[in-house]
Design a protein around this nucleic acid. Structure first.
Length: 807
RNA sequence: GCCGAAGUGGCGGAAUGGCAGACGCAGCAGACUCAAAAUCUGCCGGGAGUGAUCCCGUACGGGUUCAAGUCCCGUCUUCGGCACCA
């Protein structure tokens, strides 16, 4: 046999797959079980990078394995195209974003094929395609109709550089997700989606999905469920007249007798509402103004120094004991969490402790402990279950008991209510950018906000060559006047369109549904097809999307379920988070990094099969693996050894000699593909080939089964060899089945330990009983028992190990 | 600060509580060769011993167990996420 010419052979198979399209998924095929494998679609920017190899290949291997195992597999791909790269290219080079995306889609398609990825190309979608975003707009209209979308003026994250509104998810760590600038708080008119309302449903999704615990924990933290009490403090003026109430949220109601002041967020409406009662109004307004200038990041990172401003002339009455306490503004109180107001207990909350120090406010201790230098906080006193002090009838109780008793009392009085709070916020959904889905709504002087009729969708993005927001920060679309000015669909009068566009997460919040029925013009997807394909069985992709995209996906899927558009609340049954490929500095290799090795270079040098094997032999799917060429020799050797198996064929059926190894390999490979453990799957194949080489022969049947098992990892070489030897197409063959009786030989080698230390091994019949093996050791292996010692205990774990305890 | 994950040879990494270091790289020795490359064979955690073998060894200190890399408690380190969330 000639040497393996990967360039020629890989191209041959890639061309064949391209023209014959054998990887198409078949709707409504009831002869086979269905399996839906999803890799998160490509962000259209430029070339594929190493990270894509790490992410796509395991999904591809799983899809190929499942097909061989008799499943009807849906394994689609598409482009997430309403993103920053297209718009930046437009701004920098003037290239039309549409053209940029078209070129990008072509590139990722070609490069995917070079890797040998078995996507169903007939189902490709692209989020910036009007036929696709018609349905993104349709979903928005349904949200609007069902009162899940609203426009309101509020404080939101704003990136001064991108000049656009951002969600919390888009500004994690106080940095703009698009450009890395510090995000500021700005008051703007914003479209919100009522995601907060779905908090508990999202937590239920998290409970149901099969996913690593650390990822679930990250999501739970992000949603941030917290159970506590809302407690209402009457507000009084200087002369003691009650004029309103303020409600605070607390999870530490047990400290209520220690409240010595109340804090409001600077954005709290009372500053404006009771301006006439605030004696130092200009100080207060000044403080609010200064706070608004500080970026969120400043406010968060500057945790040491507490700033604030007393609202002189306004006092709060503690409903528990009638105490009159001062009210302050403080920027560490967040307007959009809880009620935007907190009760401050200096001795039992470190932030309040520092604030009290800074403003010379008295500190009241209500739970035992040393509060001289710092607060004794919840975690500490709950752990110790300390005793209550200075708390009227609750004094002397244990904290845990008092917590419930005080809550009961205040709830009974009508001053408090038990509530559940979530950290997650409603989703600010509009961006002041050109390259996004236009909102299908108009503003009419007579009718107000009017949704477009569904039959007018898609509302296409108009052409422009001016992609920058205007001076006041309005979207570039506001400059396209002939598009903005329109007539009202309701009254026919003059109206203007919404000129903001949707965030780039919009299109990705439902895309897995569209693959199921990508060309449907009358629905986002046919409900019967949705029922057939069901939820995504395995969703692979980066972990960086776990608290953004995946939560948005849960949200939209729940909503679509509630309006009857989809048959399940769960978009995904299993989510696997892929690790990163790191460069030699230990940094992430990605689209933006210039420090990376291009996969094209490796593909060109070693071929697709070798590249696929090498990247996945470097480390586990979920682990970050540093890139290196080291060890690729082991892979090319392995490939050469596999190729030479063709010259070693002797005999037809599975030989006695190989039957155990072969059956164990079948079991191992199936399990490893299922779990995406490609590194150990490759190792198992190498070991098998090593054994074959040592024996000097392989039978036809053994080779056939082996090629099928290796095919999901190395599809090209295995297809070629299969054709050479068996004269047909491997992908039409079936995954081999293993026989339980060939997993363990009849004669096994059992390690013998004495006091837990390995001393010898005995070859015995697998079915041997504990008595028999003990007899054997008593007679033939008695030298293992040290002189002068006797056996006090004899343990035999059938088929595994013997441990003799001597004394 | 809080939450999570992890720490195993020179390196990448394997091990349902049951033979630690699978598989591979690098290294060393040998074969082939005029020579080199390629390939093949053997060795390859540390220590003692001619040797069979023995002792130590999975970040560190304890514990549970007949048996611990794996489970429990404490400490340290690294990475990731969140971060004034009341």
């Amino acid at each position: 046999m000639k040497e393996y010419d990967f360039k020629k052979i890989e191209k041959k198979w890639q061309d064949k797959w391209d023209t014959e399209k054998p990887f198409r998924a078949v709707d409504f095929d009831t002869t086979r079980p269905k399996y839906y494998v999803l890799y998160e679609f490509f962000n259209i920017s430029g070339n594929l990078h190493m990270g894509h190899l790490k992410g796509t290949v395991p999904a591809d291997a799983l899809a190929r394995y499942k097909r061989l195992a008799g499943y009807n597999v849906l394994f689609p791909i598409g482009g997430d195209a309403f993103g920053l790269p297209a718009e930046n290219a437009a701004i920098k080079t003037g290239i039309n974003p549409k053209d940029f995306v078209a070129k990008g889609m072509k590139t990722v398609t070609e490069q995917s094929k070079l890797i040998g990825l078995s996507f169903d190309w007939d189902r490709t979608i692209c989020t910036s395609d009007p036929a696709y975003y018609k349905w993104t707009q349709w979903i928005f209209l349904q949200l609007l109709k069902n009162d899940k979308a609203y426009k309101k003026e509020g404080y939101v994250n704003f990136c001064p550089k991108c000049k656009t509104v951002l969600s919390n998810e888009d500004s994690q760590g106080g940095k703009c997700d698009r450009c890395g600038s510090d995000v500021v708080q700005k008051k703007r008119w914003v479209w919100f989606l009522k995601m907060k309302e779905y908090s508990q449903k999202l937590l239920d999704n998290v409970d149901r999905i099969e996913m690593a615990d650390n990822l679930k924990e990250a999501q739970r933290n992000w949603i941030g469920k917290s159970e506590g009490i809302e407690l209402t403090f009457p507000l009084v003026d200087e002369s003691g007249n009650e004029f309103d109430k303020v409600t605070v949220f607390t999870t530490c109601i047990e400290t209520v007798y220690g409240v010595s002041f109340v804090l409001l967020a600077p954005e709290h409406p009372f500053v404006k509402k009771y301006a006439d009662k605030i004696q130092n109004l200009s100080d207060a307004e000044d403080y609010c103004y200064k706070t608004s200038l500080r970026s969120e990041f400043d406010r968060m990172s500057d945790v040491k120094s507490k700033t604030g401003c007393e609202l002189k002339g306004i006092y709060a009455i503690n409903p528990a004991n009638g105490a009159k306490v001062p009210v302050y503004l403080a920027d560490f109180v967040l307007a959009n969490y809880g009620t935007g107001a907190v009760m401050a207990v200096a001795c039992h909350d470190q932030r309040d402790f520092e604030f009290a120090d800074a403003f010379g406010i008295e500190k009241l201790q209500v739970i035992e402990g040393d509060c001289a230098e710092r607060a004794v906080e919840k975690k500490e006193y709950l752990e110790a279950d300390s005793l209550m002090i200075n708390s009227e009838e609750f004094t002397g109780m244990h904290v845990k008991e008092a917590k419930a008793a005080i809550a009961d009392k205040l709830v009974g009085m009508g001053a408090a209510e038990r509530v559940t709070n979530f950290r997650m916020q409603d989703w600010p959904f509009n961006r002041q950018r050109y390259w996004g889905e236009p909102f299908p709504v108009v503003f009419c002087d007579n009718c107000g906000t009017v949704p477009l009729p569904e039959d007018e969708l898609p509302l296409e993005l108009p052409y422009t060559n001016d992609y920058l927001p205007n001076e006041t920060g309005d979207s570039p679309l506001s400059k396209v006047t002939e598009w903005v000015e329109c007539s009202c669909p309701k009254c026919g009068g003059k109206a203007v369109r919404e000129t903001d566009t949707m965030p780039n997460w919009a299109g990705s919040s439902w895309y897995w549904l569209r693959y199921i029925d990508p060309h449907n013009e009358s629905a986002l997807a046919d409900i019967e097809k949705l029922k057939y394909w069901g939820s995504v069985d395995c969703y692979t992709g980066g972990t960086e999307h776990i608290t953004r995209h995946v939560l948005y996906a849960f949200f939209w899927q729940n909503f679509l379920y509630e309006i009857g558009a989809v048959p399940s609340r769960d978009p995904f049954i299993r989510k696997m988070g892929s690790g990163l490929i790191l460069d030699d500095q230990g940094k992430k290799m990605s689209k933006s990094s210039t420090n990376g090795v291009s996969p094209l270079e490796v593909l060109d040098k070693y071929g697709a099969d070798a590249t696929r094997l090498h990247v996945h032999f470097l480390g586990g799917y979920e682990d970050n693996t540093p890139w290196t060429y080291d060890g690729i020799k082991g892979i090319t050797n392995f490939i050469d050894n596999v190729w030479r198996l063709q010259d070693m064929i002797k005999g037809d059926e599975v030989s006695e000699k190989h039957i155990y190894d072969l059956n164990r390999l079948i079991k191992k490979m199936g399990e490893d593909y299922e779990d995406l453990k490609l590194n150990t799957a490759i190792a198992a194949c190498m070991k098998f080939v090593k054994g074959i080489n040592a024996d000097g022969y392989i039978t036809r049947e053994e080779l056939r089964q082996f090629l099928i098992m290796l095919n999901p990892l190395a599809p090209h070489i295995t297809s070629e060899m299969y054709e050479n030897v068996f004269g047909g197409e491997l992908i039409n063959d079936k995954w081999p089945e293993y026989d339980e009786k060939y997993l363990v030989e009849d004669t096994v080698e059992i390690p013998v330990q004495v006091n837990g230390k390995l001393r010898d091994k005995v070859k015995v019949d697998r079915a041997i009983t504990a008595d028999e093996i003990r007899k054997l050791i008593d007679t033939e292996y008695s030298s293992l028992i040290p002189d002068g010692k006797s056996i006090v205990k004899f343990i035999y774990v059938p088929g595994r190990i013997v441990n003799i305890v001597v004394k």
